[in-house]
Computed example of a mutant assay.
Amino acid sequence: MTAFGLAAVVGGMFAVGTFLLLRRDLVRVVWGVTVLSQAANVYLLTMGGIVLGMGETVPVLAHHGGEPPQTADPVVQALVLTAIVISFGMTAFALVLSLRVYEENGSLDLSKLEGDA
């Protein structure tokens, strides 16, 4: 995928996440936060990789000795993996809180919940 394609995917994910974040429904807001966090993860992965020419692959070990092969940065991949796990846990927690709000108020509309505070 080209750099323009990756930028379009990341931009689209940020746009969808922002759109969902601005909705009135609480569940859509939770999904908006989730999409925004995943967009940040995709952005980090695209910035942590390497760019090669067409048809070239990244070998794990090119040769025994000499210059080390070019590979993607493993620290970025570990960071994104940790962020995915944390994001999954926070999404589950936010959805359970949304269920509790619905049980207490009978609605998930945020405009109706504002006056109750």
Rank of each mutant, 00 (worst) to 15 (best):
L79F: 08
S37T: 04
L21D: 05
L113D: 02
L108M: 09
R23E: 13
G66M: 12
A3D: 14
G115A: 15
V101H: 05
A117N: 08
M47N: 13
S98E: 04
D25H: 13
G17W: 05
G106L: 05
G66V: 12
G89N: 03
V76Q: 00
T46I: 12
T18K: 07
S107T: 15
D73Q: 01
F93G: 10
P68Q: 03
G32V: 14
L110T: 11
V60P: 05
E56V: 13
I86N: 00
V101N: 05
G53R: 09
V51T: 15
V30N: 04
D73E: 00
L108R: 02
V75M: 09
E114D: 00
L81R: 06
M47V: 15
V75F: 10
G115H: 11
V51F: 08
L79C: 12
L6C: 15
I86H: 00
A62W: 09
Y102N: 06
A8H: 12
L20C: 11
L81F: 11
F88T: 14
L20F: 13
F4Q: 15
I84W: 07
T57S: 04
T34W: 03
V16D: 05
V101D: 04
L36F: 09
A8S: 15
D116K: 01
T82R: 00
L110F: 09
A3N: 14
R24P: 11
M54H: 15
A62C: 05
Q70R: 13
L22M: 13
G48F: 03
L44Q: 11
S98C: 11
V29K: 03
G115Y: 06
G106P: 14
A39F: 08
T18A: 15
K112L: 03
T71M: 03
V96Y: 07
D116M: 06
G5W: 11
G49I: 07
L26Y: 09
G48T: 08
E67F: 13
L108W: 09
G55V: 04
N41E: 04
A62P: 05
M54T: 14
P68T: 10
